[in-house]
Design a protein around this nucleic acid. Structure first.
Lengths: 153, 153
DNA sequence: CACGATATGTCAGACTACTGACATGAGTCA
DNA sequence: TGACTCATGTCAGTAGTCTGACATATCGTG
């Protein structure tokens, strides 16, 4: 109980609070998506495809923060369910462009509305200026973590 | 045509940014803990026990954002490894108080230092005032999400 | 042109965390 | 006292994600 910190002070640790907030959001999203038969990654994939049609498996994986192997499993399921379609041949390289089907867009519509409500609930106590501050702060954290991968000493 | 994200709705969604930040932190922590043979939940459990000795399995689960079933499996492994000890009998109710062993504290020390470095890297661009703002904002989000939902577990 | 480096798609196995289910201990209330 | 409710510990099965491995396609460099 002297010299260097004894550990991470959980009550004020931003790392811990970030995990807590993310966990709370995850649970809340799960709660609204589950009744629709969707997982969070499932929804995220559809949302990403709606905004950026033609993304490949690897690009979708990066955008949803899972490995390309996991996304591959998911995409195969979504394709079987008729929610997305993948090009049979790669226009360039090996990347196969993926797009939503009408059924996919329909399923996404309901899910997207529910998720938007969850996000609005989360931000209920924050005014527009607060939300801008939060964007700036989160962006700074993401940038800092993505940059220097090797800071060991 | 990989790296680099064109400006889309997702880039301003605080839900998405929160997930991105959490994912980046998760990866960074994983990268430093893996060489030590620890997972994030493993480390989190030890850190929590160091600050709140005597926590029960269910309390540890809540503090690390996993189910009590998952924590039970982890605790059994940690006990086999001699990192924690659990009371043989419950002093009251069914909750079994858990505490770190000397070996557990030793392993935690190295891990905690590494994690602290990761957290400091993440906050490198934020001054103390920014960090206070971030605490307030995250707390507001957590509170807002923990209140309304009326789902059972 | 050949070679290596990089990026992608995909299959297979392993692991982590989750859901479901049941038993036990403590508190509440009629 | 007995019934009800809630929290806890634990076992079993399931689901989602990960790591490892391999084949293929493009680009840069010599």
């Amino acid at each position: 109980m002297s010299q260097g910190e004894p550990g991470i002070e959980l009550d004020t640790s931003l790392g811990y609070m970030l995990k807590a907030a993310s966990s709370a959001l995850h649970s809340a999203m799960e709660a609204v998506l589950k009744p629709m038969g969707m997982t969070i990654t499932h929804y995220s994939c559809l949302e990403l495809l709606a905004q950026r049609p033609g993304l490949s498996n690897s690009e979708l994986a990066r955008g949803t923060f899972v490995t390309r192997q996991s996304m591959n499993v998911l995409l195969q399921a979504l394709e079987r369910q008729g929610l997305v379609v993948r090009a049979a041949q790669a226009p360039v390289g090996r990347a196969l462009p993926t797009e939503l089907t009408a059924a996919g867009r329909r399923q996404l519509r309901a899910a997207s509305a529910a998720v938007r409500r969850v996000e609005q609930d989360m931000l209920a106590g924050l005014d527009p200026a607060d939300q801008d501050r939060m964007r700036r702060l989160l962006t700074a954290c993401i940038t800092a973590l993505s940059g220097p991968p090797a800071s060991a000493d």
